[in-house]
């Protein structure tokens, strides 16, 4: 059973789905920058509004957009509490032992929580509307400028391509090894720290051995067929951009600018 895990990708036909993956990635980065740079509540309001609008356009349900955020509630509470209790400021609500509760701290914590939550929603939107392979291609395009500073982008692309090909094989092998060791009586759980490490050796070592053996075989085959380190030019992938890609980029740039001003 050979398959590629598709992560969170959902097929669809919204504007977001039809946008070029490279542009979508750029938009996401711009948007993320906007979210990180914003430091006022009107700014967060704007960001939340924009996120809501994009979610509606994407035809994804609130469940998909908010996935993962709910599971983080404990972490959010902790961040909120720590900031409220320890933030160093003059205006303090009340003090007790080493705790100094303050309104400033509370808002500081709230900001952190909002940023993380919004970044997660943004990531969900990108990944749910773009197939992993498209996204990988977009990343490759994004890395193109690196070539100018001497990074062998073609080799990097080859390595990424080979890695993607390895994923289904390795995951099958890892599963087979896990089952085999379980049948031999391995227990992958233990209380003591050193035992904990040792208990996964029967799983980890064979998985690495299997992976490195495959890699070794492939490398030998490639060398036999004369694969060499690349120094020449690479052809740049041509992308077909449409009007909606341009509009998307423009809107995200505007959003980023607005966040800096607010």
């Amino acid at each position: 059973m050979s398959f590629l895990p598709t992560g969170s990708y959902r097929e669809g036909d919204s504007v977001l789905h039809r946008m070029d993956a490279f542009c979508k990635l750029l938009c996401t980065i711009l948007f993320l920058a906007g979210v990180i740079l914003s430091d006022s509540f009107p700014g967060y309001g704007l960001a939340a509004g924009c996120l809501l609008a994009v979610t509606l356009v994407s035809h994804l349900g609130p469940g998909t957009a908010l996935r993962g955020v709910k599971r983080m509630w404990l972490f959010f509470c902790l961040i909120l509490l720590m900031n409220t209790a320890f933030f160093e400021t003059e205006q303090i609500w009340w003090e007790w032992w080493i705790f100094r509760f303050s309104a400033d701290g509370f808002f500081q914590g709230l900001q952190v929580v909002l940023r993380v939550a919004m970044a997660m929603v943004l990531g969900n939107l990108l990944m749910s509307t773009t197939s992993p392979l498209e996204l990988a291609g977009a990343m490759e395009s994004l890395l193109y400028p690196l070539k100018l500073i001497g990074v062998p982008v073609r080799d990097v692309a080859m390595i990424l391509g080979v890695a993607i090909q390895f994923i289904p094989t390795f995951s099958e092998e890892a599963e087979a090894i896990r089952k085999a060791q379980t049948a031999r009586g391995a227990r992958f759980e233990s209380r003591k720290l050193s035992e904990k490490a040792k208990s996964v050796v029967p799983l980890v070592v064979p998985v690495f051995l299997a992976a490195f053996r495959r890699a070794d075989e492939l490398a030998m085959a490639m060398e036999a067929r004369g694969y060499r380190r690349t120094k020449g030019k690479i052809s740049k992938r041509r992308r077909h951009l449409s009007r909606r890609d341009g509009i998307g980029l423009l809107l995200c740039s505007l959003f980023g600018a607005a966040e800096i001003m607010l």
Partner: peptide, 9 residues
């Protein structure tokens, strides 16, 4: 290069 690909996978 290929060992790196394996590690990435």
């Amino acid at each position: 290069a290929i060992l790196t690909a394996a590690c990435i996978a």
